[in-house]
C-alpha cells in the first residue's frame, strides 16, 4: 500500500509537471474555448433547460415540466409542421440523390474529357449565386407573372396559371420543386469524383462481360460508389430536417400553415410571439430527432465509409 501510494503520488507529480510543461499549448487553445463556452456550450445548456419553462425571455418565467412537449404533440400547427418536414425530407432525399447521380453518370460516360469538363463547370455555376438570390428568383418564378405561369399561357394552359406559393394545394409541392432539375453542385461533384475513382480495369471487365448502360450502372457503378451515396443521403436527411431558412423566405409557412416546418414554428414562437420556452422545446425535439439519426448513421453507415484525408 505505501508503495502504491507513493507511486500514484509520483504519477500525479509527473502529471502536474506535464501540465505545467504544456502551458503554452493550453494558452493557444484558450481563445477557441472562450468563444465556445460563451456562444456554444452555455447556449446549448440554456436551450435544453429552458424547454421546461414557460418563459417570455425577459420577465415572466415559470417551471412547467413537460407541458411544452405535451403542447407540441397536441398542437395542430406543430403536427402539420412535422408532417410537412417528413414529406419534404423524403422528397429531397430522393431527388437530390437521383438527379445529381444521373447528371454525374451522363457526364462520366462522355467520351471527350473536354466535354466532361465543360458540363462539370456548367453544373457548378449556380453555386456562385447567393442562396437568398436563388430563393427570391424562385419566388418570382412562382409568382402570378413569373416564367412558370407565362409558359403555361404560351402553351395554351393559361387557365392553370396561379400564384403557386399562395395555393393551399400547391405550396408544399412548389417548395419541393425549387431548384429543378436539382443537380445540386456538391452532390454532383461527390458522385462524379466517386465514378472517376473507379479503376478502368473494373470498367473494362464489366464491358467484356456485357454489362453496359443501365445494367453497368446498377451492377458496377452504384455498388462501387455506395460510400458517396450514403454520405449524400445522410447529409441531405440532416439538412432537410433542420431546414427552415428557405421556407421563411419562400412562404413564411403559409398559406395558413400549409408549408409550416418545425424550425420556422420555433422561430415564430420565439421571436414573434415571445414564447422563448416553447420555442426552445421545439428546438429540443428537433435536436433529439437529429441526434437519433446521427446515432443510426454512426452505427450503420459511417463504419462503412472510410475516413479518407
Amino acid at each position: 500500500m505505501p508503495m502504491g501510494g507513493s507511486l500514484t503520488a509520483s504519477k500525479r507529480r509527473s502529471w502536474v509537471r506535464e501540465v505545467a510543461r504544456s502551458r503554452t499549448l493550453y494558452l493557444l487553445l484558450v481563445p477557441t474555448f472562450l468563444m465556445l463556452i460563451a456562444f456554444n456550450y452555455w447556449p446549448a445548456i440554456t436551450a435544453l433547460y429552458r424547454s421546461f419553462y414557460d418563459w417570455d425571455g425577459a420577465f415572466y418565467e415559470q417551471f412547467i415540466g413537460l407541458e411544452n412537449f405535451k403542447e407540441i404533440f397536441n398542437d395542430p400547427v406543430m403536427i402539420t409542421a412535422f408532417q410537412n418536414m417528413a414529406k419534404l425530407t423524403l422528397g429531397w432525399v430522393v431527388i437530390r440523390l437521383v438527379f445529381p447521380l444521373l447528371g454525374a453518370e451522363l457526364v462520366f460516360n462522355l467520351r471527350s474529357t473536354k466535354a466532361q469538363y465543360i458540363y462539370r463547370v456548367l453544373f457548378v455555376v449556380p453555386m456562385v449565386i447567393p442562396q437568398i438570390v436563388t430563393l427570391l428568383l424562385w419566388r418570382f418564378m412562382y409568382g402570378m407573372y413569373g416564367p412558370i405561369n407565362e409558359f403555361l399561357r404560351v402553351i395554351g394552359l393559361g387557365h392553370l396559371a396561379r400564384g403557386w406559393l399562395g395555393d393551399f394545394d400547391f405550396a408544399l409541392p412548389a417548395v419541393l420543386f425549387v431548384g429543378f432539375p436539382w443537380i445540386d453542385a456538391f452532390n454532383f461533384l461527390i458522385f462524379l469524383a466517386g465514378l472517376i475513382a473507379i479503376p478502368s480495369s473494373v470498367l473494362e471487365t464489366a464491358l467484356l462481360e456485357g454489362a453496359v448502360g443501365l445494367k453497368r450502372i446498377i451492377k458496377v457503378d452504384i455498388p462501387l460508389i455506395l460510400g458517396q451515396i450514403k454520405l449524400v443521403v445522410v447529409l441531405t436527411l440532416i439538412n432537410s430536417i433542420r431546414e427552415y431558412q428557405m421556407i421563411l423566405v419562400m412562404t413564411n409557412g403559409g398559406p395558413g400553415w400549409a408549408t409550416m416546418v418545425p424550425g420556422l414554428a420555433m422561430y415564430q414562437n420565439a421571436f414573434l410571439y415571445g414564447r422563448m420556452g416553447y420555442g426552445s422545446a421545439i428546438g429540443t425535439v428537433l435536436f433529439v430527432i437529429l441526434l437519433g439519426l446521427t446515432y443510426l448513421n454512426m452505427k450503420y453507415v459511417q463504419s462503412e465509409i472510410e475516413l479518407k484525408a
Binding site: W15, S22, W42, P43, A44, T46, R242, M266, G283
Partner: peptide
C-alpha cells in the same frame, strides 16, 4: 499533452448540436 482527448471530444461533441437548437439561446446570450 494531458487532457488532449477530452478537450478534443468536447469540441467534436458540438458537431452533434444543430444550429436550429442554438438560435434562441444565442440570441439571449
Amino acid at each position: 499533452f494531458p487532457g488532449k482527448e477530452v478537450l478534443f471530444y468536447l469540441i467534436l461533441g458540438l458537431l452533434m448540436i444543430p444550429p436550429v437548437l442554438m438560435l434562441i439561446p444565442q440570441f439571449l446570450v
